[in-house]
Design a protein around this nucleic acid. Structure first.
Lengths: 246, 246
DNA sequence: ACCTGAACACCGTTCAAGT
DNA sequence: ACCTGAACACCGTTCAAGT
């Protein structure tokens, strides 16, 4: 209620406004269509003001990436509530990741560009700190789930890997499948999108079978589980994806 | 010997010269340090001449990517000669991929940027054709190896995947592991590089065990095989990597 | 104290003018 | 026919001048 309070409030609103405008530019014209000039032009503030919020283009990019990660975290929070064996809940987690990559391809790609030395080092301390904090929140839930599976013995873990190594194996299998398959699938290519879903699940199944994580895909039909995940957890996202097609 | 012959020869030489100069700029100043202005400045030709070889920056990028792929193909050709069971030869293949990513991180990353709609569409028809041709050569060897393993029964293939799907599972597991782990490992970070090697092999082992590709990693010690791969096939690359550290 | 936008250095690309 | 480099539109960033 003090003037200072109001000031920081309007300041935060304006920052969100800038991020909104930047996202609109990206979804209209692609990542390379995002320009400080265009951003300033699409917003009722001057260059100096924009630079008062983001120290430069790299800082803005990391700010966008962080917004995307917060969104992904909210999806994972919902996936954690899915009822089922640990492997089924992990499936919900991975399905959410793939939905996220399809709904917000710009955010998915920003994670890579944000980690490249060129941008990470030029960004502000504030956004960098936020980034590693979000990263920790992101992997925290996954690690907890894996630890549970190790303790209950559902994950046989024949190679005696650590929970972190298992998490990395799952993440990199998903990340590799998604990034190799979603190159030019921006629009219309519905077959490519279905292939992404199918390939991702198959590749992750191999990893989980290799980990001896029961029930193995040879002993259990995961299709009804997937159907439940789609209906119970991510109905909104799937609807949004369908709406986007038209 | 005709004048035309000589002309195309000098033209090809000049194109290689331009690619050499571009590579030097990238390895000195990073990918974003590559600029048409700087390239022209580092070479005894004018802007117009450079644009006579590459229709624009995207075309140059794809040209560099293609050069990297040709280099990777030559490494895979050697890996194919490795003597051993199919799973051992696949290991040689993947080990080569990881060495390539460490030796030429710029080439490894260029494959992603080259596939992004922004650059692929702006590049010339010539480089685009070359690119898909190289891509076919690249996956051809891997597919042949997998088919062999399927026919001999060494790969149990419990999920009844096609050879293409198996190839994609291996490729995406490798790609994901490498790209997530080699973010800022440019220099000095020797622990991160060893971790890359270890993580990649572990993640791929899970996939291959999930495929029931014998001998399973629980029944067979692959470390001596790796040692043979290092010594018999990639001794030069490992030496180059060591030399680069100093 | 906060905001503005002219100014600067650099970028990718083109094309009239030279040889 | 081939090459040159001035010129153009656009980019990210800064900072003296305003309020």
């Amino acid at each position: 209620m003090s003037p200072r309070q109001i000031d920081t409030q309007t300041r935060q609103d304006r920052e969100q406004e800038l991020l909104d405008a930047a996202m609109k530019l990206i979804s209209d014209q692609g990542v390379e269509g995002l320009t400080m000039d265009k951003l300033v032009g699409s917003v009722p503030y001057s260059k100096g003001t924009v630079y008062g919020h983001f120290s430069g283009k790299e800082d803005l990019l990391l700010g966008l990436c962080n917004r995307g990660m917060a969104l992904l975290i909210s999806m994972f929070k919902r996936a954690e509530l899915f009822e089922g064996a640990t492997r089924e809940r992990l499936l919900a987690w991975l399905f959410g990741y793939q939905l996220y990559a399809r709904l917000y391809p710009m955010f998915f790609m920003l994670v890579i560009t944000a980690k490249s030395p060129g941008v990470a080092e030029k960004a502000s301390e504030r956004q960098r700190e936020k980034h590693i904090q979000l990263q920790a929140a992101l992997s925290g839930g996954l690690l907890g789930l894996i630890q549970q599976a190790l303790e209950s013995g559902e994950c046989g873990n024949p190679l005696n890997m650590t929970a972190e190594q298992i998490a990395f194996a799952n993440w990199s299998a998903s990340f590799g499948s998604i990034s190799l398959l979603s190159k030019g699938a921006d629009k219309c290519n519905i077959r490519a999108e279905l292939m992404l879903e199918e390939s991702l699940l198959m590749n992750v199944s191999l990893v989980l079978d290799g980990l001896n994580w029961s029930p193995l895909s040879s002993e259990f039909d995961y299709n009804p589980v997937l159907e439940r995940i789609r209906r119970e957890i991510f109905a909104d996202e799937i609807e949004a994806l369908r709406a986007e097609k038209n």
